[in-house]
Amino acid sequence: MTDAPLPDRLSVDPASPFYDGELLARGIGVRFKGEEKTNVEEYCVSEGWVRLALGNRVDRKGKALTVKLQGPVEPYLQNG
């Protein structure tokens, strides 16, 4: 399906060491507990967690407020 496997951990925050803008531009989808999630800020497959944004709420530094949930994570390329 792809040349390289998807990373174990990925973040949408450019300040994170797990950020990959090129890969994110290709379109990454995430299934969490079998359900499609569109508000994922960060995920880790090996540790089994996702960070989900809480609506439009931001902290005082302008970063999205998140909640960390445990469970099976399945990332995939949206655009083939």
Rank of each mutant, 00 (worst) to 15 (best):
A15P: 01
L52G: 04
L24M: 09
V30P: 09
F32D: 06
E41N: 12
T38Q: 15
A64L: 10
T66P: 00
D13W: 10
A25G: 00
E35V: 09
M1V: 13
E41K: 11
R26G: 05
V40G: 03
P5E: 14
A25F: 04
D20T: 04
K68W: 11
E42M: 12
E35G: 00
V67H: 01
L65D: 11
V40Y: 03
R31E: 11
R31L: 09
Y19E: 08
R26N: 11
Y19L: 05
I28K: 09
G21Y: 00
Q78R: 14
R60C: 01
G27V: 10
K61A: 12
M1P: 13
Q70A: 15
G21N: 04
P7Y: 01
V40S: 02
K61W: 13
L24F: 05
T66S: 05
Y19W: 03
E47W: 01
M1W: 08
S16G: 06
S46Y: 05
A53M: 13
G48K: 07
Q70K: 14
V30G: 05
G55F: 04
V30L: 04
N79K: 10
W49P: 02
L6C: 09
W49D: 05
W49I: 02
L52V: 06
N56F: 07
C44A: 14
P5C: 06
N39T: 01
S16Y: 12
K68P: 00
E74H: 03
N39R: 06
P7L: 06
R60K: 13
T2M: 11
V40P: 02
V12C: 11
Y19F: 14
P5I: 10
L23V: 10
C44Y: 03
L65I: 08
E22C: 01
V67K: 07
L77N: 06
S46N: 13
G48E: 11
K68R: 15
G62Y: 10
I28V: 15
A53P: 05
D13S: 12
G55W: 01
A25K: 15
P17Y: 13
P72R: 12
L54I: 14
K61Y: 12
K37R: 15
D3E: 14
S46D: 08
P5Q: 13
P72H: 10
T38F: 13
Q70G: 03
G55S: 06
R31D: 08
W49A: 03
S16W: 09
E41C: 11
G55E: 02
P7D: 00
K61R: 11
A4F: 08
Y43T: 04
P72D: 14
D59K: 04
D20K: 07
G55A: 03
P72A: 10
G62E: 13
D20R: 02
L23N: 08
L65Q: 15
G55R: 01
L23E: 06
R31C: 00
Y76T: 09
D20S: 08
